[in-house]
Design a protein around this nucleic acid. Structure first.
Lengths: 337, 337
DNA sequence: TACTTTTGCTTAAACGTTTAAGCAAATATA
DNA sequence: TATATTTGCTTAAACGTTTAAGCAAAAGTA
C-alpha cells in the first residue's frame, strides 16, 4: 500500500542508462551529453523524482543542515537573527534546524547532542544564561564541526563570534542618562559570568566613575533579566533609603517588568525615575511610556553568523583565521528617559 | 587531519565480532548474550561511538525528524506550541525542525519542499495568512507523510487538526462586552478565507444578532492583524460618523496597535471604548491598560499535536480515524473592557 | 594513417547502518 | 540416544546516492 519513491534507478531504467549517468546528469556533469541531460530531467519531472537527501548526505558525508541554538525563539531579537540566518543559508542550499535551550544548561547540552546526532554541518549558537561549563561546546569543536557564537558568547572558547559592543553601548546609555540630568544611576544587569553582561556591567561602572557619579554597591544588581525579575529587582531598588533617579536594565523584558511596577506604584517615568532597556524589542515602542533601548542589529548579526559559517566550510581549513565581529549598537531614545 | 568517526565496524574489529552483532547488541536484541552486549557497550563508550543517524535513517527509511511550520516564532503562542511539541516528541526519540513562513505562501511552499527533502517523518503546521491554495499540503498527504494542522487549519484538507473553539470564543467575547454595557460593538477580524478567522467572524455576527445589537457593515473589518494594521483599522472605525463603543480584535498584536492609536488620540480605554484582543500574548497583561484577551492553550495544543503525530506513526494505518480536537478557550478579563 | 585526446557513458565500490536468512553449538525434549 | 528447539552469532544484501576508475567510440592531431 505504501508508495515507492522514485529513485535514480527508476529513471535509469526508463532511459536504459546507468544510475551513475542519471546522477551525473542531474548534477550537470560535463561528461554527460546535453541530450541525455535533457532526457533525464524530463523523466525525473515526469516521475516526480525527489532526491533522497539521506542517501546523498551519507555518501557525501555532509548533511547540508545547520543547527541553531537560542535561549528562546519568542524574543524578537532571536527570532529575527534566526530569520536572517535562514535566508542567507537557504540561498546556498543549506537548511537550518532551530532548537531552544530555554536558558537551561541541561537543555542546551541535549540540544547539542541532538544536533550532532542529526549530523549537522555546523552549529550557530547563543548560549543559555546558565551555561558556564563549556565542555559541550568543546565537544563540537573536537568533532571538527564549525561553531559560530553570537550575542551570548564566551571568550575562552576559541570560536567565531558575532555580537555588538556591549561595553560601549552600556557606556553610551549612562552618558545619555547623565545628559538627561540623572545623578544616581542604577543598573540591573545580567549575570557576570556571561561575557556580554559582564561587559555591560563594566561599561556601566567605568562610565559612572568617569563622570564622578556615586558608585554605590546597592545600585548594581545582577539578575536573570526575566520580566518577573525586573519587577523584583526594581522593588529592591525602590526600597533603598536613597533610591536611584535612573535605572538602566540590561534586558527589555526585565525593563518592562520594572516599568510595570513603577506604574503600579504611581512613580512617574521619566520624571521621577528614568528607565533604559536593552535590545529594542518591539514592545519598547508600544508601552506607555515608550522605553529607551539599544538596537542590537539582529538582521546583521544573523547574516554575518551565516556568512561566517559559509566561509568556514568553503575555505581551506589551514588558512582560516578566527572571526570576531563586533558591531556598534545604536541608542534609540524614547519617552522613558 | 580530519578525524574519522568511530563506526560500528570499529567496535566489531576490537571485539572480533561482526558489525551486525554490534548493531544488535546496541539495540539490545534478545539474540545477543549479555556478555557480548556489555562488551560492545563498553567499547562503544571507550571509542566515543556516536551512531550515524543518516545511515540508520536511510536504511530504516525513517529520519526521526518532524517538521514544524509556523507563520512566525516570535509570537508567544507559536513559540509555546513549538516548545511543547518538542518536549513530547523528544521523549519518543524524535527531533523537530522548525521553519517559519512569515505569513508568506511562497515561503510556506518552500518550507514544505525543504522538509520533504530533509525526509521528515511528519509535518505539524499552522498555515500562513496568505495560503488559500492547498496543493502543497496535498503533496504532503500524497507522499503518505502524516500531516497535523493546528490553529490555522483548513476544513477542506482532510487531516488531523487541533485548535480552539473560535466560534464560541468569539461569541463569549461579544457577550462579555455586552455585559459591560457596550451597545455598538465592532470587530476587526482576520481574513475570512482562513477558517479560524471566519469562525470568529461568524461567532461575532451570531452573538450580535442574538442580542439584537446593530449589525452595521462598517463595524466589521477584515485585516491582516499586524500591529500596523490594527492602528489603521482602528482609525477607520474612529472615522465613522457613528463610531463603536467597543472593539473586539481577532489578534493581540493588532489590538496593541489599536490601543496605541487610542491612547495617542486620548480616547479613554475602557471608559470611552472597550477593547478585547485574542491570543493572550504576554504583553496583554503588561500594557496600560491591560488588554482583555482569549487564552488559546498553547501548551495543550502543542502537546496534542505531537501526540497526534505519534499516534499516526504508531498505529495501524488502516484503523486510523481522523482527529479533530477542539479545545475550549478561556476569556481573560482585564482592564481594557 | 597512426597516435592522442575528448566525450559519454558503465562498472563497482563506498557511505554506516539494519535485517533477513542461515548455521553451528548448546540446550531442551521425548 | 535421537530429535527438536533455542541461543548466539555470521553472512550478505539492502537503503539511494556519489564517485573513482575504466573503457569504447568519436574527434582531434601529426
Amino acid at each position: 500500500m505504501k508508495k515507492k519513491r522514485t529513485t535514480i534507478k527508476d529513471i535509469a531504467n526508463v532511459l536504459n542508462i546507468s544510475p551513475a549517468a542519471v546522477s551525473k546528469a542531474l548534477h550537470d556533469d560535463s561528461r554527460i551529453s546535453a541530450k541525455t541531460k535533457a532526457a533525464v530531467k524530463r523523466v525525473a519531472k515526469e516521475l516526480n523524482y525527489q532526491p533522497n537527501h539521506l542517501a546523498s548526505a551519507l555518501r557525501k558525508g555532509k548533511s547540508n543542515l545547520v543547527g541553531v541554538i537560542v535561549p528562546r525563539t519568542s524574543s524578537n531579537f532571536f527570532s529575527s537573527v534566526i530569520q536572517n540566518i535562514e535566508e542567507v543559508l537557504n540561498r546556498e542550499g543549506y537548511n537550518i534546524i532551530i532548537t531552544q535551550s530555554n536558558e537551561s544548561f541541561k537543555k542546551e547540552c541535549s540540544n547539542i547532542d541532538t544536533l550532532l546526532f542529526t549530523q549537522v554541518d555546523g552549529i550557530i549558537a547563543s548560549m543559555a544564561n546558565e551555561t558556564v561549563d563549556l565542555s559541550y561546546y568543546e565537544k563540537i569543536k573536537s568533532k571538527g564541526i564549525p561553531l559560530i557564537l553570537f550575542d551570548r558568547g564566551e571568550n575562552d572558547l576559541n570560536v567565531d563570534y558575532i555580537g555588538i559592543n556591549d561595553y560601549d553601548s552600556s557606556f553610551m546609555i549612562v552618558e545619555h542618562l547623565i545628559s538627561k540630568g540623572c545623578k544616581r544611576i542604577a543598573h540591573i544587569g545580567g549575570f557576570r559570568h556571561t561575557r556580554i553582561f559582564n561587559n555591560r556591567i563594566r561599561g556601566y561602572i567605568d562610565a559612572i566613575h568617569r563622570y564622578n557619579l556615586p558608585h554605590d554597591d546597592d545600585l548594581l544588581i545582577e539578575s536573570s533579566l526575566t520580566m518577573e525579575d525586573g519587577r523584583l529587582k526594581m522593588q529592591e531598588l525602590l526600597a533603598l533609603e536613597n533610591p536611584p533617579d535612573a535605572v538602566y536594565i540590561a534586558g527589555d523584558y526585565a525593563a518592562l517588568g520594572a516599568l510595570q511596577l513603577l506604574k503600579e506604584k504611581n512613580i512617574d517615568v521619566p520624571n521621577d525615575i528614568c528607565l533604559v532597556g536593552f535590545g529594542n524589542e518591539p514592545f519598547t515602542s508600544l508601552v506607555t511610556p515608550t522605553i529607551t533601548s539599544i538596537n542590537q542589529h539582529s538582521e546583521q548579526i544573523g547574516q554575518l553568523a551565516a556568512k561566517t559559517f559559509l566561509e568556514r566550510v568553503k575555505m581551506d581549513p589551514l588558512k582560516q583565521t578566527l572571526n570576531k565581529i563586533i558591531l556598534d549598537a545604536a541608542l534609540i531614545e524614547r519617552d522613558s528617559s
